[in-house]
């Protein structure tokens, strides 16, 4: 590859270093201190796994377990629903030619990204109360499904844009119906994008605090809402342990999504 001195601006490398430092220091610090034996949490006084034990067996562990189960259930279902809708939408946007409403559709699918989160939260709360739906698993699930759609849509449509319609055309030339062309040709090629989209919307759902907090009602908690409730009174070490666990889950899922996406790209470079 051509290298030219013009690419390198003095000081930019250092600023990039600072950028990475700023992004990672808080995460690394909290992960390290979650193993701190001292309960005063500031002074390092030796290695311990006690806080992790407390998360799973302590007084509040039942509450956290329930919240974790709720979070997972919502994330699994909401991201599945949004992925299916995003897949259909991507085919509609990229494989159906032009039609009335196509350009506005793109804005509509991206709408959850454009509306400030607090507005979405308020809007959902008002709407559910207007319908007479009190906060529950269902309201949280609906709200999550909505904002997960663009996160599932983007990797799927990016992948689909990389796949020329040539293969499906060839399939129909070889006596496949359109449905067969989709199922036997496009779908397998899209799979990395679909998995990637599912994982991303899964993380987004797992992460959401603000909207969940508005629509959850009393009695239904997810992990972020219980953690938020707990830190109001101060950051206790068991919260740091739980945060580190969630940190790990997010990072693993992102890396997985990235690797699957990349593998897909390399497997059928055209």
């Amino acid at each position: 590859m051509r290298r030219s001195g013009l690419r390198d601006m003095p000081g930019f490398a250092q600023i990039f270093g600072l950028c990475v430092f700023l992004l990672y220091t808080p995460l690394i610090v909290i992960a390290v201190y979650s193993f701190n034996a001292s309960s005063s949490i500031t002074i390092w006084s030796g290695f311990t796994l006690d806080w992790y034990k407390e998360v799973f067996t302590g007084i509040d562990s039942q509450k956290y377990r329930d919240a974790a189960v709720n979070s997972l259930l919502v994330a699994v279902i909401a991201s599945a629903l949004s992925t299916v809708m995003a897949l259909a939408a991507a085919v509609g946007m990229l494989r159906a030619g032009s039609f009335r409403g196509r350009s506005i559709s793109f804005g509509l699918i991206g709408l959850p990204l454009l509306v400030p989160e607090i507005v979405t939260a308020v809007a959902s709360l008002i709407f559910f109360s207007f319908l007479g739906l009190s906060g529950s698993f269902l309201t949280v699930l609906i709200a999550h499904t909505v904002f997960c759609i663009p996160f599932a849509y983007l990797p799927i449509s990016a992948r689909m844009q990389d796949i020329p319609d040539l293969y499906e055309t060839a399939a129909t030339d070889l006596y496949a119906t359109k449905w067969q062309a989709f199922r036997l040709i496009l779908l397998p090629m899209l799979l990395p994008g679909i998995v990637s989209g599912y994982l991303l919307s899964f993380i987004v759902s797992l992460d959401d605090f603000l909207i969940t907090n508005f629509v959850k009602g009393n009695g239904f908690e997810t992990l972020p809402t219980v953690i938020f409730g707990a830190v109001r009174t101060g950051i206790r070490p068991n919260i740091m342990a739980m945060s580190s666990l969630l940190l790990l889950i997010s990072i693993v899922l992102v890396l997985l999504s990235y690797l699957i996406g990349r593998q897909g790209r390399e497997k059928f470079r055209i």
Binding site: Y167, T169, A170, D173, Y175, A176, I185, M189, F268, I270
Partner: peptide, 16 residues
């Protein structure tokens, strides 16, 4: 798919 005509594509379009 309902025409008994097949095509050899310029870029071959072999299913990868």
């Amino acid at each position: 798919n309902r025409r008994e005509i097949n095509t050899v594509f310029q870029q071959y379009a072999l299913f990868p």
